[in-house]
Computed example of a mutant assay.
Amino acid sequence: MLYAQSLLSAQKSKEAIALLDGIKMSSRSPVYTDFLLLKAAALKMDGKASEAYQQLSKAYAASPETAIGKVLYEYGSAINKSKEQVEKDITFIRDTAAKAATDFSLNQYFGKGKASLNNYKGKVVLLTYWFPGCGPCRGEFPHFQNVINQFDKKDVAYVGINIVSEQNDYVIPFMKSSGYTFIPLEDVEGRAKGNLDNGGAAPVNFLLDQNGRIIFKNFRTDGDNEEVLYEMIASTIKNFKK
């Protein structure tokens, strides 16, 4: 990427694009956003602002990274799109990709009976798969909580599905001692999870809209990107269509 940056500094946009096109970059890479921004800059320099905008829009729709959000309107303006048109484009991409989440019926640790997605209809749902002994889950919970605390409970449901039944006895004590506010549910081994499948792993996260559609998935939250989760939730609340 450093060489691509040097090519761009030398106004050699075509060479930079060719170099970047040859790089296979995972969206989970810590430099993925930098990669996208560099490629967008090369495309714009090469007179391909529309292609740059499309790539950034698609990436931002999937994960609203702050760095991309800061320049997205600039790229939209370069092809005569207003701020409102850019926002409509992002919403359209998300709506097109959204799929109804596979329902579940799981035992609650607090209260009686089972809970299903219908229990949370009308709310954005932050859904995480976890278990009490999961270190990465415990590492993520404080950041989830920091974000959730910024929203009204009437707008957002925070749900955690425990995937290790052998640790059931630790769930309620953990909830009471930690102060976390997610709703703990007990998973059922072998159930058909459909498009809410965690592949037996934890943490695995999903964000559903008020109609139970998956809007965001396979994301992680830490101290460096809480604002991304905030934007995911805020934009989903804003764009709700009854």
Score class of each variant (00 low, 15 high):
185 L>I: 04
120 Y>A: 06
2 L>V: 13
241 K>S: 15
210 Q>C: 05
158 Y>W: 04
230 Y>G: 01
67 A>D: 10
221 T>Y: 11
164 V>G: 04
9 S>L: 14
39 K>C: 01
106 L>P: 09
205 N>S: 13
202 A>T: 04
32 Y>T: 00
216 F>T: 12
194 G>K: 06
125 V>D: 00
232 M>N: 11
239 N>R: 15
129 Y>H: 06
41 A>G: 10
99 K>H: 07
21 D>G: 09
182 F>Y: 08
109 Y>I: 00
191 R>C: 04
31 V>R: 13
14 K>V: 08
95 D>Y: 14
215 I>R: 15
69 G>A: 05
138 R>P: 08
50 S>V: 13
110 F>A: 06
206 F>M: 08
166 E>K: 12
28 R>W: 12
208 L>E: 08
58 K>M: 14
27 S>T: 11
214 I>C: 10
154 K>C: 03
230 Y>H: 14
230 Y>T: 10
206 F>W: 14
41 A>F: 12
115 A>L: 08
30 P>M: 02
61 A>C: 05
151 F>D: 00
28 R>Y: 14
30 P>T: 03
101 A>S: 04
5 Q>T: 05
115 A>W: 10
38 L>T: 09
1 M>F: 04
185 L>T: 00
120 Y>L: 06
205 N>A: 10
23 I>Y: 09
50 S>Y: 14
70 K>Q: 13
134 C>V: 02
67 A>Y: 05
203 P>L: 09
203 P>S: 08
63 S>V: 08
10 A>H: 12
226 E>V: 14
207 L>A: 02
123 K>E: 00
127 L>D: 03
129 Y>L: 03
230 Y>F: 15
46 D>N: 15
233 I>Y: 06
2 L>Q: 14
66 T>G: 04
67 A>H: 01
86 V>Y: 05
149 N>L: 03
202 A>P: 02
132 P>Q: 02
140 E>C: 04
129 Y>S: 05
201 A>Y: 11
145 Q>Y: 03
40 A>C: 06
126 L>E: 01
172 I>A: 07
131 F>T: 04
133 G>L: 00
117 L>A: 01
120 Y>W: 11
213 R>A: 00
205 N>E: 08
162 N>D: 12
155 D>C: 03
63 S>E: 09
82 S>N: 12
87 E>A: 12
109 Y>S: 00
145 Q>I: 06
47 G>F: 06
127 L>W: 05
59 A>E: 06
178 S>L: 01
27 S>Y: 13
34 D>I: 00
154 K>G: 10
103 D>S: 05
61 A>K: 02
25 M>C: 03
118 N>P: 09
24 K>L: 09
126 L>M: 05
51 E>T: 11
103 D>L: 03
31 V>E: 07
192 A>N: 15
155 D>P: 01
159 V>A: 01
114 K>L: 07
151 F>W: 04
176 K>W: 00
106 L>T: 03
217 K>N: 15
118 N>W: 07
154 K>H: 05
184 P>V: 02
94 R>T: 08
112 K>F: 13
172 I>C: 01
212 G>M: 07
164 V>M: 07
